[in-house]
Design a protein around this nucleic acid. Structure first.
Length: 881
RNA sequence: GGGCGAUUAGCUCAGUCGGUUAGAGCGCCUGCCUCACAUGCAGGAGGUCGAUGGUUCGAGUCCAUUAUCGCCCACCA
């Protein structure tokens, strides 16, 4: 079989994904009798395109799912998309605008139809992008937050909460986006520090020539002022309380009143009060019966309540108000002022606090359960410190505004009676008023917050409110994998809803992974143009290289700084694996068949690599179990490259090729071990690098065997734990390294083989050297080996000192005395330093008195060893004259 | 104003329960196209672990203070 000498992802990725998907290998069956393992995908927006955050998020989930699937679990990765109310409506409105139309031109029904059409044609790109990433989602079960079943779940939840009084209508200040023309919840408002101004404005006191001065950051709101507040303890203004002031521009008399809310230190200590446009003012207005004057329409333009300013945008109105105040001499001063201004999280327009009637969820009772579930460990955050963030928010949670003035979403299942005004709420749309039976009813115009339906995702996707086998088997799900930025939006709400409606947590673990930043540490965003596009990376370096990079960087508790270089680097790892496999296949020989390995036939290095394989399996399992993806990736990388390739494969070459060395007799064992380790370590790598491993597996699997993705996950084999052979191998490796070091430092050309003399009094060391002579010769490029306990080195010998062993390379005319002296001096200096530190410790009486005996023994042994090495080094140094 | 995190090699980062001589990748320097791989091989240089103080026989690791940077939350107009 001819295998190309470098790995080409393009040849394999699409091919294997098709095989997997068409072969139904991602499908998990409720009746398979296996232990369930389930992850629900954080549903990407239907408008979404795969960015690096998705790539990370989904790579990690796929690693877990593939790992668990190979471990024999019934591994279900539930995929789907979110209808993304505002985002999607915005996209379609933009398209309409290009046609010169607005949504109102179409009307609600046609607009909705239009959005569905858009969804069918251009929505859901991301599903195929996830396929490119190799995600092993159970696509058969794919759900959409607006599909029929999920809508039923939404209605059921709404009706239940309404009946229990946990959903109610309220008339209050909410966050309003004048561009999206909808209410937003508190967490959909992003605060940004902006430099604004603090305008100091005179309000004349009624019936006098005096003024008071109020300070405001939003002067246009004065059009809706209905009072001025002072702190009751503020001596300066005690006499003012109860008096009336004239509201300039509007020429309305408004009262001055006292309220503890007012901060005496801020501004002038006098606050203009606009109950319809500020939540605090609203509260004060309620306390003091001020009345509310709404001066804005839904687009943020001044309405008829703004008198002469009617028709101006809120920004123009601000300018005009300030200008007019100045003309009237009522503007005292303007200060620069930094303050946090709320913006719409979807379109980034400045939001307005706006008085309106909305639906709310009374969230405290739900939150209490949610807090308890994390406190008592039914849900575990990984890393744990995110629990604090969660608690902090949950303790201070405020009622959730769930109505949106949009057309795209779950229409609120509340029906108003036109005759008796009763509100009927039930799961199925009613045909008559639940109270007076009138048929003259109308449905609420608003839709629900997108996050209302995504909050039900872990059970609605499994079939709830029906009692399906899937729900029975896979709920609670095993783990939720997400980034911290949606803990409030999504994670907390799933927890609350799951507890409420399923009576159990929605997932056992919440793994919070990092955010991805660019090379300079900035958050990746399209507007900054610093995006690394995962699709381009996959195209360029292969999906497995990208996946491996992301896993390698996914250390807990830290953001990921991604650079293209890194991905390029792990492409070489793919190539390394590819070539290692190629080498092994080229050397198996005709008619090779795998057989059981017997302990007796194994040589030292066979035992060593089998032992290391066991350790690699253990390390990988342990790392993945704790969501330490970087540790898992690192364990595999160093095992593959620095143990299997650098050492074991190199060592087998003598056994495979070097007949003169008489090592040929063990070549069959070597082939068996190579093949065995190759198979196991390829499987180990599969969850991280699904494509290349599936491709290679095809070349190494048995005829009866199926795909690697459903093969059995490697298990450590205790009978292959060989501690003493591992120690011998470490000694062997150091010998080779020492010789190579001398060669490298002395610039001995690679084709120049050197004779080496080993001086040792240890029979054990001598026998290992004798036994591995062939390998030492090959790996260190040694011409001849002499073992001589009494060797008297010449001054032209380069030397290295180890415990119980000195190595001499007679370089003769090749020696560079200066270099050799410098090399030995460096070692002496280092050894002196290390020895000094150990001796200091051992001379410290309290160390001897208090440290555990084994630590002291270790230090003593270390001292003796180092002292011996040092004296030998000095002896070598003395000869270099 | 609260809270969280970071600070270790030129860069990006690991470092478990405090205990051998603090590691990796990339980059850099030297030598090699050695029959799996130049997307490679071998060797090398490079670190007072942000600062100060403390606990301890022993601190990159624990505690306190501090500096710098970053993030989240918050109704001071």
């Amino acid at each position: 079989m001819e295998i190309p000498s470098s790995y080409d992802p393009k040849q394999v990725e699409d091919k294997w994904y098709r095989v997997w998907e068409q072969g139904n290998y991602f499908h998990a069956r409720e009746d398979d009798g296996k232990e369930p393992y389930c992850i629900v995908i954080p549903p990407p927006n239907v408008t979404g395109n795969l960015h690096m955050g998705h790539a990370l998020n989904n790579t990690l989930q796929d690693i877990l799912i593939r790992w668990q699937r190979m471990m024999g679990k019934s591994a279900l990765w539930m995929p789907g998309m979110d209808h993304a109310g505002i985002a999607t409506q915005n996209v379609v409105e933009r398209l309409l605008k290009e046609e010169g139309k607005t949504k109102d031109d179409l009307g609600r029904e046609k607009f909705e139809k239009r959005v569905w059409e858009w969804k069918e044609q251009s929505g859901g790109n991301i599903q195929n992008q996830l396929r490119r990433l190799g995600c092993s989602c159970d696509w058969e079960r794919e759900r959409f937050t607006l599909d029929k079943g999920l809508s039923r779940a939404v209605h059921t939840v709404f009706a239940t909460l309404y009946k229990e009084g946990l959903i109610y209508q309220g008339y209050r200040i909410i966050n309003w986006c004048p561009r999206c023309e909808t209410a937003l919840s508190d967490i959909e408002t992003e605060y940004r520090d902006l430099e604004g101004h603090l305008w100091h404005i005179r309000y004349p006191i009624a019936g006098t020539k005096d003024f008071i001065v109020v300070a405001t950051t939003r002067p246009e709101t004065m059009l809706g002022d209905t009072g001025v507040a002072v702190n009751p303890d503020d001596e300066r203004y005690r006499d003012l309380v109860g008096k009336m002031v004239i509201l300039p521009l509007m020429n309305r008399e408004i009262p001055v009143f006292a309220d503890h809310f007012v901060d005496r230190e801020f501004g002038t200590g006098l606050v203009k009060v606009t109950p319809a446009h500020d939540p605090n003012d609203f509260d004060m207005g309620k306390r003091h019966n001020l009345g509310e004057i709404n001066i804005l329409d839904k687009n943020g333009f001044i309405n008829e309540n703004g008198g002469p300013y009617k028709g101006l945008s809120r920004f123009d109105a601000r300018a005009k108000v300030v200008e007019d105040l100045e003309k009237l001499g009522l503007l005292v001063k303007i200060e620069k002022h930094m303050h946090a201004v709320g913006h719409c999280y979807r379109c980034h327009t400045i939001i307005e606090p706006y008085l309106s009637k909305q639906w709310f969820v009374k969230i405290k009772p739900l939150a209490e359960e949610g807090i308890r579930a994390v406190e008592d460990g039914r849900i575990r955050f990984v890393p744990k410190n995110w629990e604090k963030t969660y608690f902090e928010w949950m303790y201070n949670i405020r009622d959730w505004c769930i109505s949106r003035q949009l057309w795209w979403g779950h229409r609120i299942p509340a029906f108003y009676c036109n005759d008796c005004e009763h509100i009927t709420v039930q799961v199925d749309d009613p045909s008559e008023c639940g109270k007076c039976k009138s048929k003259n009813i109308r449905q609420d115009e608003d839709v629900l917050d997108t996050w209302f339906s995504s909050g039900l995702w872990p059970f609605s996707t499994l079939g709830w409110p029906e009692k399906t086998p899937a729900l029975e088997k896979y709920y609670p799900t095993s783990v939720l994998v997400t980034a911290f930025d949606i803990i409030f939006f999504w994670v907390a709400r799933m927890i609350m809803m799951g507890l409420k409606f399923m009576g159990d947590v929605p997932f056992r673990d919440v793994y919070i992974h990092a955010l991805i930043r660019d090379e300079s540490g900035a958050k990746m965003s399209k507007s900054k143009g610093n995006v690394i596009d995962p699709l381009i990376m996959m195209e360029q370096y292969g999906t497995d290289a990208l996946r491996f990079t992301l896993a390698m960087l996914a250390a807990q508790g830290r953001d990921i700084i991604l650079s293209e270089k890194r991905i390029e680097g792990y492409r070489t790892f793919c190539n390394k694996i590819w070539n290692a496999t190629r080498f092994i296949l080229m050397n198996l020989g005709d008619g090779f068949s795998e057989r059981q390995l017997a302990a007796e036939e194994l040589e030292t290095f066979d035992r060593w690599i089998l032992h290391r394989l066991n350790e690699a399996i253990r390390a990988t399992d342990a790392a993945l179990a704790e969501y330490k993806f970087n540790d898992a990736a690192h364990a595999m990388y160093s095992f593959w490259w620095h143990e299997f390739c650098d050492w074991y494969i190199e060592l087998t070459k003598q056994r495979l090729y070097d007949k003169d060395a008489g090592a040929g007799k063990s070549s069959d064992t070597a082939r068996q071990v190579l093949f065995h380790v190759l198979r196991k370590s390829t499987q180990l790598l599969h969850p991280l690098m699904p494509f290349i491993t599936e491709e290679l597996w095809e070349k190494i699997k048995g005829e009866e065997e199926g795909l690697i993705m459903i093969s059995r996950w490697p298990e450590p084999r205790p009978e292959f734990d060989f501690a003493s052979e591992s120690a011998e191998t470490a000694l062997f490796q150091e010998i080779v390294y020492r010789i190579r070091n001398i060669r490298g430092e002395m610039n001995v050309p690679p084709d120049k083989k050197a004779p080496v003399v080993f001086k040792t009094a240890s029979d054990a060391v001598a026998s290992i050297i004798r036994r591995e002579e062939v390998h030492i010769k090959a790996l260190a490029r040694v011409e001849s080996i002499t073992i001589d306990a009494n060797y008297a080195p010449a001054n032209t010998d380069a030397s290295a000192v180890m415990t119980d062993l000195e190595i001499f390379i007679p370089l003769k005319s090749l020696i560079d005395f200066d270099k050799e002296r410098a090399r030995i001096d460096k070692e002496i200096e280092k050894m002196k330093g290390d020895l000094g530190r150990v001796e200091q410790k051992l001379n410290n009486e309290s160390f001897i008195g208090k440290a555990p005996a084994d630590v002291i023994e270790r230090e003593k042994a270390k001292r003796n060893e180092m002292a011996e090495i040092l004296s030998k080094l000095e002896a070598s140094r003395a000869k270099l004259v």
